[in-house]
Design a protein around this nucleic acid. Structure first.
Length: 565
RNA sequence: GCACCCGUAGCUCAGUGGAUUAGAGCAUCUGUCUUCGGAACAGAGGGUCGGCGGUUCGAAUCCGUCCGGGUGUACCA
């Protein structure tokens, strides 16, 4: 709680013997710098008129040195104005190299799981959100003091494997695989899924049985199946690493489903012994969840004895408990799986696991149909591949800087800034519309807008390295007032974004700071024209803080600041 | 059927632990252009916050209900 809130809190105690935390909001500038509705909150229990409480409080606050103006509006809002200089001294009191961070999570460990792609297909924009948001969550948790363990739960097992082998033997060749790698895998996978669907519509199951046979063979340790599995996973893993490197995301571990299946089947056997799980007549094994409000049990083993998603996820939970002892586990997975995760978490609770398991879900990525309606992106309609997206974004950025001396590294940062920021432009639960123009947005509410503001600030700082930025006592800081107030908001924004796990709040904040900065840039010279040495030192001191926040905030979103753009 | 999510300007979205006159970007129109780099800035038009009812001094925000859309609903992940 900052100084202003503390002053008001103390006055409430002195005047009304009420001990109540004071929330400050930032109203429209015409009303003031800060506002509070505390009078409306305390009036009722006191049995007083809120307007009168506000007036009395305002009279008292007017006597304090901290405020240049105190007014009461409406039913009892108190609007406060402070001097820019006092904002600067407040900021100076709070400032450190880790400004914005806190230690709320100290001593606690969190596992963050992302991007967990399906290895049967090339990395598509379908995994943009789990990757981006997962990385942002990791960074936010780190910034709030947590010990973070990241794990890429690779989809290297299950039905996709069977689909792929079945399809490969019918549709592909060693030569094609060697030439096109993961793209050939994807082609075969999609074609085979289509054939499976058509077969099912005809009421047949020849291909489907073949898929299941390959799965069983793999679980039984069949040499040929293992060879196929290793071959296809290796090709896919190299591809995934390549894309993640370009996205500048990584994880500490890559414990995929294949790693957990043997442990999962053993765990299911134990659950069967203890009666937690029950076996159906057809051989399938379920964990009933009636006690937890589910009319659908969780299937943990198929009737043919094969493992499935829940089998490896069960083992994954147990493994993490045993080896990592997390306080919290965050699964960054699409919203389509909400029901499944509530079941999975219910099972964990049934097993006595008390760790906070959290499904961080995202809305789907839509594409626009010709008739204007929206529909989830699907392989049927044609997914956009991540490498294609990155290539096009870089080409767009490159064409804009054409003729100027901008490094390839900076071009990549700008392209990535545009792509990632667009994912943070809305709440993660919102279905986002995939649109080539908005995902590459370089103006307005976009990553490059913030990068641009940041580059301009850094340019000024770099051009004036000989002038030591300083906090200057006889400077009024009036032109910098909006920026100073905005900087003071940063720690609360980080706390809110981390607590609610809503990284887009960081994006919104950074845009507002960048806008304030750009306005300032247009109106106030820092190191040019008739700027006095005192003004120059003071303004450079503010810009240095702005630069720090841009770099820090963008890094929470996995975005870097280019050196030039 | 049931569960979860969504419905705010032409389009894409913020804002929803109630609170002063509902915000931004894009698009449209009008300005700034010998500059600390215009990927910028200033301004204009554009919204009965899906409908109805309720709670409240006060509702985009909370509750109920209806309409519309999305995603799920055990042998996919």
């Amino acid at each position: 709680m900052n100084n202003i809130a503390l002053i008001i809190k103390q006055e409430l105690i002195d005047m009304f013997a009420v001990d109540h935390d004071v929330q400050l909001t930032r109203p429209d500038v015409q009303f003031g710098d800060y506002a509070t509705n505390i009078a409306l909150q305390v009036a009722k229990p006191l049995g007083k008129n809120p307007r009168e409480v506000a007036e009395a409080l305002a009279d008292k606050l007017r006597q304090a040195d901290e405020f240049t103006e105190v007014s009461v509006a409406g039913p009892g809002f108190i609007n406060l104005r402070v001097s820019a200089k006092s904002l600067m001294s407040e900021l100076e009191g709070q400032w450190s190299d880790t400004f914005g961070e806190n230690t709320d999570g100290a001593g606690k460990a969190v596992v963050v799981e992302y991007p967990s792609p399906n290895m049967a297909k090339p990395y598509s924009v379908g995994h943009l959100r789990p990757g981006n948001q997962g990385w942002a969550v990791k960074r936010l948790m780190e910034a709030t003091g947590w010990t973070v363990i990241t794990d890429n739960h690779l989809g290297d097992y299950g039905a996709p494997f069977g689909v792929w082998v079945t399809g490969f033997l019918k549709l592909s060749s060693d030569g094609a695989l060697q030439q096109d790698g993961v793209y050939e895998l994807g082609r075969v996978y999609i074609a085979t899924k289509k054939a499976l669907k058509e077969e099912k519509e005809r009421g047949e199951a020849t291909l489907a049985n073949e898929v299941q046979q390959w799965l069983l063979k793999l679980e039984q340790g069949d040499e040929q199946a293992k060879a196929f599995s290793e071959r296809f996973n290796q090709i896919s893993l190299e591809h995934i690493h390549g894309v993640m490197t370009r996205l500048k995301i990584s994880t500490d571990y890559e414990l995929g489903e294949a790693f957990f299946v043997p442990q999962g089947k053993a765990a299911v056997a134990r659950l069967l012994e203890t009666g937690t799980a029950v076996q159906n007549e057809d051989g399938s094994i379920i964990v009933p969840l009636d006690d937890y409000g589910f009319d659908v049990p969780l299937l943990v083993q198929k009737s043919n004895g094969a493992a499935l998603y829940a089998t490896s996820d069960l083992a994954t939970i147990l493994y993490r408990e045993e080896h990592w002892h997390p306080d919290k586990v965050i699964y960054c997975v699409g919203g389509e799986q909400q029901f499944y995760f509530t079941q999975l978490f219910a099972m964990a609770k049934k097993l006595g696991i008390t760790t906070d398991l959290y499904h961080l879900w995202f809305g789907v990525i839509d594409q626009r149909n010709d008739d204007g309606t929206r529909e989830k992106m699907s392989s049927r309609k044609g997914v956009v591949l991540m490498e294609e997206l990155l290539d096009k974004a870089e080409a767009r950025a490159r064409s804009i800087v054409e003729g100027r001396d901008i490094s390839e590294e900076d071009i990549q940062k700008i392209a990535l800034g545009a792509i990632k920021f667009s994912d943070f432009s809305a709440d993660r639960r919102t279905n986002i519309l995939f649109d080539w123009d908005s995902i590459f947005a370089l103006t307005g509410f976009s990553g490059p807008y913030i990068q641009y503001a940041s580059v301009r600030v850094n340019k000024i700082l770099n051009d004036n390295v000989d002038t030591e930025p300083a906090i200057v006592g006889d400077y009024d800081y009036e032109p910098e007032k909006a920026i100073l107030a905005k900087i003071l908001d940063y720690p609360a924004v980080v706390t809110l974004a981390a607590d609610s796990i809503e990284p887009h709040k960081i994006a919104t904040y950074l845009f507002e700071l960048a806008r304030d900065m750009n306005r300032y840039y247009e109106t106030t010279p820092v190191a040019t024209g008739d700027v006095s040495p005192v003004q120059q030192q003071a303004r450079l001191g503010v810009l240095r803080k702005v630069s720090h926040i841009f770099t820090h905030g963008l890094s929470l979103l996995g975005i870097e600041v280019p050196s030039r753009m």
